[in-house]
Simulated assay, not measured.
Amino acid sequence: MSAVLYDVPGPRAKARNRIINALVVLVLLGAVAWVIFRLNQTGQFESRRWAQFQYTAIQNELLDGLLNTLRAAGLAAVLAMLFGAVFAAARISDHAVLRAPATLVVELFRAIPLLILMFFFYYGSLQYQLGLSPFWAVVLGLTLYNGSVLAEIFRAGIAAVPKGQREAAYATGLRKNQVVRLILLPQAIRAMLPAIVSQLVVLLKDTALGFIITYNELLYVAKQMGGRLEFGFPYIPTYIVVAVIYIGLCSLLSVIARWLEGRSRRSGKGGPSPEAAEKAMAPEATL
């Protein structure tokens, strides 16, 4: 008996896979134990290095850094989604005057490292006195880079919808923008959702690059907290706390994504909603 892409493992293969999995788990546990041992040997778990987190002022500093991180990530996510939607629409346009420049912009900003974009906006603003704050340098850099990636995700998602859906929609007399908006996009959004959420997680984590241009986000606050002599320079404990916060935020995004995906599956099997189909087939839609 075989599957589509590979042979179903037999009893010996299953036993061998279990042994390999157990060995991998043991190696990982050993690596984690060794890291914890080394941290303990270097005094990273001493109470003095963790004492600062019990003070309200320190907690407020972390909260301010977290809010600044969420503020930059939230605004950049909205702008990146709008950027991606506009340029994805331009890339699938029938008019070369729209398609060619959009392709150039998307490929350009996908190829430029995000940190260079932040440097460009921050130091360019300082040199030419444009008045951009570190916050806007971070937001604009995140928007251009992640928006270009999202534009390609949107374009690929729409292109992945079966060709018969387009042909059937065009046969009813719908224009291209109506086909995309009413027929293709409702189906494509379900397939695109995991990739979109994955890119938003990347965007959230990339806000940490803002500490290089002195944006007062979570990592910048952690760097300042870790350099305090009275607590024995608690860099490692502080970065552990910040890492846990980032893991929590990313896990929350993943949970929301799974909820949205489950909700979309319950609402339909991948086709357009009944309301969209009825609207698309209405006589005035073809005018």
Rank of each mutant, 00 (worst) to 15 (best):
R12A: 15
L117A: 03
A169N: 08
A257P: 02
W136K: 08
L82V: 15
I92Q: 13
L218T: 03
L132K: 01
Q41F: 06
A151M: 03
L252H: 02
G262T: 05
P113W: 09
R190F: 01
L75D: 02
L82W: 10
A73M: 00
K223C: 03
A57Q: 14
A77F: 00
A85G: 11
L142S: 01
L66E: 09
T143M: 11
W34H: 11
A89N: 13
N40L: 06
E107W: 10
T42L: 14
R18F: 07
Y123E: 04
A15L: 11
G271E: 13
R258G: 12
Q165S: 08
L252I: 09
W259Q: 14
N177F: 11
V27W: 12
P186T: 03
V106M: 09
G131P: 02
A85R: 02
Q187L: 02
Y239K: 01
G268E: 08
L182K: 11
S254V: 12
K176A: 13
Q41N: 11
I245Y: 09
L114F: 03
L62W: 07
V27G: 11
G131Q: 01
A88G: 07
N216T: 13
Q52V: 10
Q54R: 14
Q52Y: 10
F154C: 03
L219D: 07
G226N: 01
T69I: 04
G157P: 04
M192K: 05
R265L: 13
A13N: 08
M1A: 15
V86R: 03
I245L: 13
A102Q: 00
S2H: 15
P134Y: 00
T56Y: 13
Y215I: 04
R190N: 02
A90P: 00
L62V: 04
A13Q: 15
I36N: 02
L185G: 04
V180P: 00
F53H: 07
Q44M: 06
I153S: 08
